[in-house]
Write a protein that binds this DNA or RNA. Structure first.
Lengths: 123, 123
DNA sequence: CTGTATCCATTAGGATACTG
DNA sequence: CAGTATCCTAATGGATACAG
């Protein structure tokens, strides 16, 4: 019976057959977990700094992923009407709910792939 | 200083700047978390059943992702020399270490996207 | 049954130049 | 500074057919 219950994603109206699949559709994608991790570590970050810390993401992809995270309600975009422009990204309250996932990803990477969690804390 | 320490992945010799990134390279990919979740739920599963439960993955993609998971030591492939052939997939001991990640993915999907964890348990 | 091979369409992603 | 626009390649995915 449960197999017939489906969930519809806000953004793309896709149907899911499993909660893992649903999660992946929201925070999956090559850069999204890294973006979310970054935001979680530093709270607020500007576009430029974000791009640097993701070492090598193209502006096209960064913008695309940020827009999707915004649409899904995970990320907040605050624009200051200045010249030159200033835009700050941060996690929404809803965005903070993915923190346990990010921590699980980080813990496993640190423990089993031999590196510490230092992103966002480097000197 | 820590920013200079890199980790090399067994499979593709890629360098990582962050443990999250390293994790994504191993269990990222569209089907991998779903495959791992499936294996975690049912312990042992045959190729055919796996393909059915992933509702729509093509044999080409399924095989590819399974091979990579094998190479990374997460998945065990047991072949029975029979006709017709029988192949069983399961998590290795190392593979079981990703369980917390899978559970975090499932919990979030269930809680925030409104569906229960039932995959692998449907009647 | 468990795949591999092939062809094709779609999409994700990278490089770079440029704009308000 | 914070992105767009453009062009391009690589990866993904679907539909078979077929092999051992």
């Amino acid at each position: 019976m449960a197999i017939d219950k489906k969930h519809i994603n806000i953004r793309n109206n896709k149907e899911y057959h499993c909660p893992v699949e649903a999660t992946l559709d929201v925070i999956g994608g090559k850069w999204k977990p890294l973006i979310l991790w970054q935001l979680k570590e530093v709270d607020v970050i500007r576009y430029n700094k974000l791009q640097q810390n993701l070492h090598g993401v193209s502006p096209r992809m960064l913008t695309k992923q940020l827009r999707e995270l915004e649409e899904d309600g995970l990320v907040n975009r605050k624009m200051y009407p200045e010249i030159p422009p200033k835009v700050e990204y941060s996690l929404t309250e809803f965005g903070w709910t993915v923190a346990p996932i990010l921590e699980a990803l980080c813990d496993w990477g640190s423990e089993y792939l031999g590196r510490q969690c230092t992103l966002g804390q480097e000197e």
